[in-house]
Design a protein around this nucleic acid. Structure first.
Lengths: 226, 226
DNA sequence: CCGTATCCAATAAGATACTG
DNA sequence: CAGTATCTTATTGGATACGG
């Protein structure tokens, strides 16, 4: 009885809130809970299943993921979609507005990696490493380089097209790419951002192009520690 | 005994963490706690005292503010500064890197105000309304308009300079501005963003210029509710 | 007045077991 | 596989008291 009342009140009161008209405060009411923005990140290249999300969110527990997805759906950032037969599985998909959070997520990441305490050796999800390509791409370094770069992570493939000083990254079959990276996201991160030797990743296709590729993503300078 | 052990462990383990090398995850370890980004927002136009922060952060409790400031200081985003005599008071100041979070904060805000549930009628702090000028300024609408616009909120003044299609906002004495707004932040927000009549704010100086000014900050369109 | 510290109640998060 | 249910722990907020 007492519990029911509390629950009902929570639905009305929308739990803790900042009584602040500032857009930032509202943003934090939308995606300020723990894990919320990281869940959004995982949806940025298309719909995902519950278990995929759980696998790429190291440390999240099922009940928290359920809760976050429910809240994000209720707030209009995520949609629950039933795939047609014969798949007939349920997936979670970012709405158009949800996808518009991508630039903010990238800028937050770019800002944070300047931190002296950032540890690039931790787990990296496929989506993380693919978003980092968009975040860290340096058009000047690319110059007039053109090429299609493919990535295969388990069952999922990604394609990055570089040309005209821009990079376009999407989920997709990497067959036919000029270069195909066959390595887990952590290994690729090691080469791109951790100074690991190029040989630590399995690359097929144009190796010269591949070696050029891995130089196109400079990290911003660390903040002065003084 | 048990408590001491837990406390010590917390200092080492840095409490909850995402084991994720992604920059976004690290950003959330830096400023993901409740209130952290809003505290940073309040420091974006210069150092502030504890009680000022408390007053402009409706609903924060003193102990949480103390804790947030301590964490932000430890992480290199905030500095504690002792003002020289005769003031001799302590203020909190964003570091250079902390200030670089400003664009991210603005973009988060711009993204969030498209939400159908955003309520512009809540409390607005002076810093919020001043940052919103930078966020929502429309260079096309401004055209070749030039002018200095002053604001007085209690003891604190702000100046916004518009010219060459840019806006520059800073803390400072508004005397000598072409237009001086003498109204609380909420009233100004009402006119700029809430459709309130221009006459609801006290304006001195060039009223024609002032009327033009309040049209330069269009809100982004709300997301489709369907 | 400027904070800090402490205690308590309410929520949120995490671990684990369990069900259709 | 896709979540729920339950229990434990951690964090937050509010009140209040305390030292400079």
């Amino acid at each position: 009885m007492q519990l029911e009342k509390t629950t009902k009140l929570r639905q009305i009161e929308e739990k803790r809130h900042y009584d602040d008209a500032c857009g930032l405060a509202h943003a934090l009411e939308l995606v300020g809970e723990r894990w919320a923005l990281i869940v959004m990140r995982e949806l940025m290249f298309g719909p995902r299943r519950f278990s995929e999300l759980r696998a790429d969110l190291p440390g999240i527990s099922a009940n928290v993921l359920t809760q976050r997805l429910g809240e994000l759906e209720q707030r209009g950032l995520v949609r629950r979609v039933q795939l047609p037969p014969p798949a007939s599985v349920q997936v979670y998909e970012a709405t158009g507005w949800g996808l518009e959070a991508a630039p903010v997520i990238r800028e937050l990441g770019r800002w944070a990696v300047r931190s002296p305490r950032h540890d690039p050796g931790l787990f990296v999800s496929p989506v993380s490493i693919m978003m980092s390509l968009q975040t860290m791409f340096d058009a000047d370094r690319a110059g007039d380089l053109r090429g299609r770069f493919g990535f295969r992570f388990g069952h999922t493939g990604f394609v990055a097209d570089i040309g005209d000083g821009t990079i376009d990254v999407r989920r997709g079959d990497p067959v036919g790419s000029d270069v195909l990276f066959n390595a887990d996201p952590g290994a690729i991160a090691g080469v791109l951002y951790g100074g690991a030797p190029f040989e630590t990743v399995d690359v097929s296709g144009d190796r010269t192009l591949a070696k050029r590729f891995v130089t196109l993503f400079p990290l911003p300078p660390k903040v002065e520690t003084s």
